[in-house]
């Protein structure tokens, strides 16, 4: 059974989001997603400073098995990317919810958060797949 963190928000496309008090959202992929992908061998990250739209493909995660797009769950400007993943992409497998984060964005529309799932809804979503 994959791990789902209580305080995070989740997108249907299996990204998680954590928003801090300054409106900075950290985005990664869920434990369920990394498990489905298997061993991750490459990660491509968005460029710093670009504005991304909610549900836009902004990063790529490539495993031994398959390549998958990572979508931004929210609209905003990319303020930071996790460059350690370029050298150690397996961190996404081992720590999907902390050291395995992908990028941070300064969000421009907090209302978009309401469209994301909470942990319970996401657990149901995973079960249905």
């Amino acid at each position: 059974m994959s791990k789902i963190i209580e305080d995070l928000k989740y997108a249907e496309s299996h990204e998680w989001v954590s928003v801090d008090d300054n409106g900075i959202a950290t985005v990664g992929i869920s434990d369920h997603a990394q498990e489905a992908l298997g061993d991750i061998v490459f990660v491509e990250l968005p460029e710093l400073g670009v504005t991304v739209n909610a549900k836009e493909e902004v990063a790529v995660v490539e495993s031994v098995k398959a390549a998958s797009d990572v979508y931004s769950p929210l609209t905003g400007e990319v303020t930071e990317v996790n460059e350690t993943l370029l050298e150690t992409p397996e961190t996404v497998n081992t720590n999907p919810y902390d050291n395995g984060w992908f990028f941070k964005i300064a969000i421009s529309d907090e209302a978009e958060l309401d469209e994301l799932m909470d942990a319970d809804a996401y657990a149901d979503h995973c079960d249905e797949e």
């Binding site: 299996h14 869920s30 489905a36 797009d69 797949e129």
Partner: peptide
């Protein structure tokens, strides 16, 4: 993410 590779 689009994990369409989940085995039944």
């Amino acid at each position: 993410m689009s994990p369409n590779n989940l085995e039944p």
